[in-house]
């Protein structure tokens, strides 16, 4: 199985979460206000939006298959990513044909904490 080149976010940005709140039209304060995160017992840093975490996996796939198109993506959300986390999106090819490739994909925080696991199909 061929490993895909990882895509790394060195430090998840709280500013980017404010941008994503606007993109998603979703002002949920767990993405904006660490005091709300603390009050809910969810940690002490703002929580990255799930679709932003997915975007890092998509970036990894598009870099791994230049000119390819993602035709299917299935993602299971396992844990939260927080402001300041170092995230790495990775994957490996589990099936390859002339016209498509199927990959296992994942996003992990700080080297060992799974955030997302999934599968993707790319049309080459």
């Amino acid at each position: 199985m061929t490993a895909l080149t990882p895509f790394t976010i060195p430090c998840v940005s709280a500013d980017a979460m404010r941008d994503w709140a606007r993109f998603l039209r979703d002002p949920n304060p767990i993405h904006l206000d660490p005091d709300v995160v603390r009050a809910k017992g969810l940690g002490d840093r703002v929580i990255n939006q799930g679709p932003a975490n997915l975007a890092y996996i998509i970036n990894m796939l598009l870099a791994a298959f230049p000119g390819g198109h993602i035709t299917a993506l299935e993602s299971r959300f396992i844990d939260n990513a927080y402001a300041g986390d170092r995230l790495t999106a990775g994957g490996r090819v589990v099936e390859a044909g002339k016209a498509h490739a199927t990959c296992e994909v994942w996003l992990i925080a700080d080297g060992n904490r799974p955030i997302i696991q999934g599968t993707a199909t790319i049309t080459l």
């Binding site: 940005s13 980017a16 941008d19 975007a55 998509i58």
Partner: peptide, 30 residues
């Protein structure tokens, strides 16, 4: 907005008019 979204995730936007695939979630949700 697509350009801002791409840059917020560490990549440059495509130059062929395609949007970041993460818009599958955003467009349907919004």
């Amino acid at each position: 907005e697509n350009a801002a979204l791409c840059r917020s995730t560490g990549v440059e936007p495509a130059t062929d008019g395609t949007a970041h695939p993460a818009y599958y979630y955003i467009a349907t949700q919004v």
